[in-house]
């Protein structure tokens, strides 16, 4: 039994040795699948996600008729081996559907959908490994893949989580929770558009005292901006390589 989050106050160190305001290691690559229109691979700590983008392609005819804007479809599949326990999740899994819905609405408002009438953009995400901040990782991976596919959107949509220590007298926000912390602490996921404070996604599913939310949100927004810096560097490095190597 290793220590749990209650020891945070002893030395201001979290379970994995981070401070309250530190992100986990983020590693990202884009254009990982040549066959896809756009693709990315993203690691936030031990959470690993692959994302591919298909489209914009001619959409299926739906009952509502083809709109003037393109549709965004999101498919998430969570590998059975991704968690601690081997578990198969079917398509109808409620949590997966909810995440799909969140991503769909988030990107429908971020992508310039009016440029592609009568068409569909499909985002396919594969979760290879889970260790907390899953929704945030999916959002980040999707952003990268969309950029790789060259689909115009208003800005980077970057996300991360923030939690709060359970300590009553001195509750402190924590940035970017890992799986173990997520189990023990209340946390929210925030997605921020660009380098300003525009919150595009906000998800809070645990019970938390209302006084704490402000601090958590501030820390999360700050974290999103840092994530944006990292993703931007990845994109720029990739662009430079294309220019230099002409790949």
């Amino acid at each position: 039994m290793p220590l749990d989050t209650s020891t945070y106050s002893l030395a201001l160190l979290r379970l994995d040795g981070r401070r309250w305001n530190e992100l986990r290691r983020i590693h990202a690559q884009i254009s990982t699948q040549a066959a896809a229109d756009g693709s990315s691979y993203l690691e936030m700590g031990n959470t690993k996600v692959i994302c591919t983008v298909t489209g914009p392609a001619e959409g299926r005819r739906t009952a509502q008729g083809a709109g003037q804007e393109c549709r965004v479809e999101v498919e998430i599949s969570i590998a059975g081996f991704s968690g601690v326990e081997r578990k198969r999740r079917g398509r109808a899994d409620k949590r997966t559907q909810e995440m799909q819905h969140t991503l769909t609405t988030a990107f429908t408002s971020t992508i310039f959908t009016h440029l592609y009438p009568h068409s569909t953009i499909t985002l396919t995400l594969h979760v290879l490994s889970q260790d907390g901040s899953l929704l945030a990782a999916c959002l980040n991976a999707a952003t990268l893949a969309l950029i790789d596919a060259g689909i115009p959107m208003s800005d980077y949509l970057c996300a991360c989580t923030a939690g709060s220590t359970a300590n009553e007298d001195a509750d402190e926000p924590l940035l970017d929770l890992n799986g173990l912390e997520e189990q023990e602490l209340p946390f929210l996921t925030a997605g921020v558009l660009g380098d300003n404070d525009k919150v595009a996604v906000l998800m809070l599913e645990t019970r938390v005292r209302v006084e704490r939310v402000e601090g958590m949100l501030a820390v999360a927004v700050d974290g999103c901006k840092r994530v944006r810096g990292i993703l931007d560097a990845v994109v720029r490095a990739h662009g430079r390589r294309i220019v230099e190597e002409g790949v």
Binding site: A11, G17, D131, N178
Partner: peptide, 16 residues
């Protein structure tokens, strides 16, 4: 009775 394998990151630091 199930056996689980847990993988955790460890961030080593110099400011402790």
């Amino acid at each position: 009775g199930k056996v689980q394998k847990i993988v955790r990151e460890l961030y080593l630091r110099q400011d402790i």
